[in-house]
């Protein structure tokens, strides 16, 4: 059996700056393994060990994903090997293109029966890539997954929806998008990073996968209008004085009667 972890190498928007014309400067935002994906590596490793499966990382992104630094950072999270597409035509790709490229990569890897993904990417947060990936592969998808265990011929998945906590039996192949609390995530240690340098990684050419690249035509961009804020700071060293200052300020602002 082969399990794939789909992960993104992406910068964090908190370190980006947006110019008045809406252009985004990412130069101070160092890309890293997307926060939300960390949990997928942990769950994937545990499951692969329990089921005797191989754990393969799959990732698509801009050319910087192909650097030894990026590959090692991904491999250090418990993967057996890594398969990537690193091409600047995928920089800033939307969920449809990213999902399709990942699906093509999963087909390229072959014999994958389970794809695990984080619930969102740190740079977009749209929570849609696992859904496109699954639809393109024609596999079922479940999200909000808290735990996964193997049972004969199937997987037992616990997941939360807005209304319930469910246990779902699902056949394979399947795509599972993990809740961020599905496992406790640690930072890879020195041993993991050193071992990562010896693990195999393969870069696949984007053109070899036949992925259709699409993006809506952009006709304008802007920096969101900022709501003016008063930025009144209140010293909280005396709790009662601070509370009474705050309450009267809120009454003055008309939000408390």
């Amino acid at each position: 059996m082969r399990i794939a972890v789909a992960a993104k190498w992406a910068p964090d928007p908190k370190d980006a700056s947006v110019a008045p014309d809406g252009s985004v400067d990412w130069s101070r935002a160092r890309p890293a393994v997307s926060d939300y994906d960390a949990v997928a590596f942990v769950v994937g490793r545990l499951l692969a060990d329990a089921l005797g499966a191989e754990l393969v990382g799959v990732s698509v992104g801009a050319a910087d994903l192909g650097t030894p630094f990026a590959r090692k950072a991904l491999l250090a999270r418990g993967l057996d090997r890594l398969v990537i597409v690193a091409d600047d035509r995928l920089a800033g790709a939307d969920a449809l293109t990213t999902g399709r490229a990942l699906a093509a990569l999963v087909r390229h890897v072959g014999a994958v029966e389970l794809v695990l993904a984080g619930e969102a990417s740190v740079d977009e947060g749209a929570q849609l890539v696992p859904s496109v990936l699954a639809a393109d592969l024609g596999w079922p998808v479940l999200s909000g997954v808290g735990s996964v265990s193997g049972c004969p011929g199937a997987l037992l998945v616990e997941r939360r929806t807005d209304a319930a906590r469910e246990t779902v039996r699902c056949g394979r192949p399947v795509v599972l998008s993990l809740a961020s609390d599905a496992a406790t995530v640690g930072v890879p240690g020195m041993k993991d990073v050193l071992a990562a340098g010896r693990k195999p990684s393969e870069a696949v050419e984007l053109d070899a996968l036949g992925v259709r690249l699409s993006a809506p035509q952009m006709v304008g961009r802007a920096r969101p209008a900022e709501r003016p804020r008063r930025r009144v700071m209140i010293d909280g060293s005396d709790g009662d004085a601070a509370a009474s200052a705050l309450v009267s300020a809120l009454r003055g602002a008309g939000v408390l009667s």
Partner: peptide, 14 residues
């Protein structure tokens, strides 16, 4: 017109 990158920027697309 919609937010991108989690809402830090906006763009308009056809």
């Amino acid at each position: 017109t919609h937010g991108v990158h989690g809402g830090i920027a906006e763009r308009t697309v056809a």
